[in-house]
Write a protein that binds this DNA or RNA. Structure first.
Length: 404
DNA sequence: CTATGTTTAGAGGCTC
DNA sequence: GAGCCTCTAAACATAG
């Protein structure tokens, strides 16, 4: 029997809505200011606008990075298009801004630390209150094209949170696992025109309500693609899944209840099936990556057989594990498709045109209930995270009545 | 060889 | 307490 070492540094507590509500008055900067007099100017960025936070975060991240990495330029690019991103998913950017604010505080506290002997522990050692799925989602959403490579995800996380600049092998393995294991992440293969290692990763368009409880540490329910689940069952049992929920529920992943399966299948069925003639596909915008559009001729045979989609509609096809599937969204119009890279502002329109109303509110981050955001004022950080409670004087700054 | 991706297994915490 | 979610570890396969 193997003992998990995680208890010694991480406990991954989930924060319930009630806890979130009660935490509304808790401002991390206030908590730490009581321990670090005079440091408010440096760390009270929670009262700042998200954009300010985002900007300062990135600069902090950049300052602490060694040299120029591809991701650095990506972050700069992200910053450059922040206005567009904001228009695509405001709530998502609130979360990103909050995450960046947290990173900002980490760095600020790091600076304060040198002037304050009483401060014993750096934010650098604190594990950010986000699940890996949340972090991956943030990385994807922060990308102008909503598609990132694995290394981009790594860099995004390390840029944002110094905590993840250590023990990289451990958490990066978890990142890879999360990408492969969770249906909400879709793998988009590279085109011959864009050689390189690894694929691109994007979000499944139907995975929008993963974090509807407003908690980014733990999803209320896990998104599962019925089609992919059926594939798993088929592979596992060596037979065709013809009984849908029953088979899925009995032999499927232990992470999925029958109820959830039924709900999601219903959602899938209710999702309007766009009827877009291939020839009506608009030419890519001027700033699109033209070279990628040749992907339709590069669909692996095995994958093409698995998904008999029209050749004209073949986007970045492939069903390796969790490629975008037919019926879920047409490839040639999928806002995330690399064959259809468009401005964030166009994403919403495209989605609405293909029968996905409210795309702008689909992102996991943006699915945070408005009431929750109003209650929390962006402060729904799961401050019950033990690693945070060990900050400062190593006394838990959060009253037990609130933290638990 | 290294990075990437998949899969399995188990532990701990949370929700119902 | 059962079921679910997340995290971690590890083995293995594959691509560049």
């Amino acid at each position: 029997m193997m003992l998990s070492p995680k208890a010694s540094y991480q406990a991954a507590p989930a924060t319930t809505m009630s806890t979130m509500g009660s935490m509304a008055a808790i401002n991390p900067s206030v908590q730490y200011s009581s321990q670090m007099p005079g440091s408010m100017n440096s760390i009270n960025s929670y009262s700042m606008s998200p954009m300010n936070n985002m900007g300062s975060m990135n600069m902090n991240g950049m300052n602490s990075m060694n040299g120029m990495s591809p991701m650095n330029s990506m972050n700069m690019n992200t910053m450059g298009t922040m206005n567009q991103v904001m228009s695509t998913s405001p709530a998502m950017n609130m979360e990103l801004a909050r995450a960046s604010s947290l990173a900002n505080q980490m760095n600020a506290v790091n600076r304060v630390r040198t002037d304050n002997k009483t401060y014993r522990r750096s934010y650098t050692h604190a594990k950010p209150p986000y699940s890996y799925i949340s972090l991956i989602t943030m990385a994807i959403q922060s990308s102008p094209n909503k598609m990132v490579t694995l290394s981009d995800i790594y860099q995004f996380i390390m840029d944002l949170f110094p905590f993840y600049r250590q023990n990289q092998q451990r958490w990066q393995n978890s990142i890879r696992h999360s990408l492969s294991f969770n249906d909400c992440f879709l793998k988009v293969p590279r085109t011959p025109d864009r050689p390189g290692k690894g694929s691109f990763w994007t979000l499944h368009p139907d995975s929008g309500n993963m974090f509807e409880n407003g908690c980014y540490l733990r999803r209320q329910k896990r998104f599962k693609c019925p089609k992919r689940e059926a594939q798993r069952v088929t592979q596992r049992d060596g037979r065709t899944d013809e009984h849908g929920e029953e088979t899925t529920g009995s032999t499927g992943s232990p992470h999925m209840t029958d109820t959830t399966t039924a709900q999601q299948q219903q959602t899938q069925q209710q999702m309007p099936q766009p009827k877009v003639e291939p020839h009506t596909m608009s030419p890519p915008p001027p700033n699109s990556i033209q070279s990628i559009t040749s992907m339709s001729n590069n669909v692996p045979t095995s994958l093409a057989m698995a998904r008999p989609i029209p050749q004209q509609a073949a986007y970045v096809s492939g069903m390796g594990a969790h490629m975008l599937g037919p019926g879920q969204h047409p490839s040639f119009n999928h806002p995330f498709s690399i064959t259809n890279i468009m401005s964030p502002a166009e994403h919403g329109k495209a989605y609405e045109a293909m029968g996905y109303p409210g795309y702008n509110t689909m992102s996991p981050i943006s699915s945070m209930p408005k009431s929750s955001m109003e209650q929390t004022g962006y402060t729904n950080l799961t401050t019950s995270e033990p690693s945070y409670s060990q900050l400062g004087t190593q006394q838990n700054p959060i009253p037990n009545s609130i933290a638990h």
